[in-house]
C-alpha cells in the first residue's frame, strides 16, 4: 500500500485515494475543432512510461481534491505531489532532490 503525500493533507495511505490516470492530458478548449485521430489520442492514448510518470490521484476519502503526482513506475517511489492546475515540475530538479 503506497503512502501518498496529499499536497493538501499530508501523507496518507493509498486506500484513501483513487487513481485518476495520466496527468497533463489537456482537454481541447474547442473539441469540435479537433480531428478524430487527435481526439482519440486525447481519449485513449497514454504515455505509460516505464520510469517517471506524471499522474493524477484524488484524495477521495480526505479532502476530495484531485492533485498531481510524480512517481517512478519501476520502484513506485513518489518524487513529489502538487495541486491540480500547477505547472509540471522540472524533472531534472526532482531527480536531483531524490539523489539520482
Amino acid at each position: 500500500m503506497l503512502l501518498i503525500p496529499c499536497p493538501h493533507c499530508g501523507p496518507r495511505p493509498e486506500i484513501e485515494f483513487r487513481y485518476a490516470g495520466e496527468a497533463h492530458v489537456a482537454r481541447a478548449a474547442d473539441p469540435g475543432a479537433v480531428n478524430d485521430q487527435d481526439w482519440a489520442e486525447y481519449l485513449y492514448f497514454r504515455s505509460n512510461p516505464k520510469g517517471i510518470h506524471f499522474e493524477r490521484w484524488r484524495h477521495v476519502s480526505g479532502c476530495a481534491r484531485f492533485f498531481n503526482c510524480v512517481r517512478d513506475t519501476v520502484s513506485d517511489k513518489i518524487l513529489t505531489t502538487y495541486p491540480a492546475g500547477e505547472k509540471k515540475p522540472d524533472l531534472g530538479t526532482l531527480m536531483k532532490e531524490a539523489g539520482r
Binding site: M1, L2, E14, I15, R18, Y19, N48, K50, H53, E55, R71, T73, V74, S75, D76
Partner: peptide
C-alpha cells in the same frame, strides 16, 4: 492494483 506500475508487485490490501 489501482495504479500503473512496472514493479511486478502490488499492495497487500
Amino acid at each position: 492494483d489501482a495504479y500503473t506500475s512496472y514493479s511486478q508487485t502490488g499492495g497487500l490490501h
